[in-house]
């Protein structure tokens, strides 16, 4: 029993990371039809921004406080990068979806190269607050605190985004735009500005995911964003491309399936079962994946 609770908790923790990585991707895809390969760069650069912050803050400060500040810096850096990429690179190619995807592919390649030049290809170990490295007893299981933290953060981000979508004007425009972007423009609403904001939000969420993922992995490395991105893509596809609640459900499902298969079958089977899950979802309900903007 306690074993099952442990697996569920770690699976949820992983799902929380996937949700953080996928939420921005899903919003950007839903509103703009852009499959953002540069999202991996946002995550990776966010993680490095966090790492640099923790390095530069005085050692006297506790690791926990430094981590919080690192997250703040990463959020700002991620939002800035997202906004700059949208304004400088994505906007001029408006309505050319394939070219937009290509540009983000180029960016993701170049960003990894820059990171290797600046920080080298070797993983940089990150400091972890002692609280996050220990466990909490729930139902007889020793649950790792970092996973619990991921779940709490993901829940907060999910609730925040849902509230934003439901109760603000920006959210109204995003929801309308996800349904029918052209009609929003045809009603005289400036969608361009919304695109920039959504990219900034996506960048911030990605950077947050990057910092937390580096806590999970124990280090930062240039290729880190790329491996997380593939799972984020799978989550976005299973979640119905552009729906935030769908993304959340899919992230939890993917995290749980992966963790359970890894535990009950064999290490590595989890990764494959995620792809299998995708294939099954595709075969069972391909209609949900048509994703309007193809």
């Amino acid at each position: 029993m306690s074993e099952l609770i442990l697996i569920l908790a770690t699976g949820l923790g992983l799902g929380a990371l996937y949700f953080l990585a996928a939420s921005g991707l899903s919003l950007i895809y839903g509103l703009m039809g852009v499959l953002n390969f540069a999202h991996s760069a946002f995550m990776m650069l966010g993680a490095y921004a966090g790492w640099e912050t923790m390095q530069r803050l005085p050692d006297g400060m506790s690791v926990g406080v430094r981590l919080v500040l690192a997250v703040v810096v990463a959020l700002v850096v991620g939002a800035l990068i997202g906004a700059v990429v949208e304004v400088c690179l994505i906007r001029p190619l408006y309505k050319h979806h394939i070219q937009q995807v290509l540009v983000t592919v180029g960016l993701s390649l170049a960003a990894v190269a820059v990171a290797q030049a600046v920080w080298s290809a070797d993983p940089k170990p990150v400091q972890k607050p002692t609280w996050m490295a220990s466990t909490t007893d729930i139902g007889g299981a020793h649950l790792p605190n970092d996973r619990l933290l991921f779940v709490v953060v993901a829940l907060l981000v999910f609730a925040g985004l849902m509230a934003l979508l439901r109760y603000t004007r920006l959210g109204l425009i995003i929801r309308a735009g996800v349904e029918n972007r052209t009609m929003v423009e045809a009603l005289g609403i400036n969608v361009q500005g919304t695109f920039t904001i959504v990219f900034a939000m996506g960048g911030a969420a990605a950077a947050l995911a990057g910092v937390l993922y580096s806590q999970y992995a124990g280090s930062v490395s240039p290729a880190q964003g790329g491996s997380l991105l593939i799972y984020a893509f799978i989550v976005v596809v299973i979640g119905g491309m552009g729906s935030l609640p769908g993304t959340a459900v899919a992230a939890v499902a993917v995290g749980l399936v992966q963790q359970m298969a890894n535990y009950y079958a064999a290490s590595g089977v989890g990764d494959l079962s995620v792809v299998l899950l995708l294939a099954v979802v595709l075969l069972v309900r391909p209609a949900s994946m048509k994703g309007g903007h193809a």
């Binding site: 929801r175 423009e185 045809a186 009603l187 400036n190």
Partner: peptide, 22 residues
């Protein structure tokens, strides 16, 4: 499009295109 609509041309498309989820 946005500018033109703000200049004062209103557009009601074929098939209405209301936002069904709103």
């Amino acid at each position: 499009t946005t500018r033109i609509v703000r200049e004062g041309i209103g557009y009601v498309p074929e098939d209405r295109e209301v936002f069904g989820g709103l």
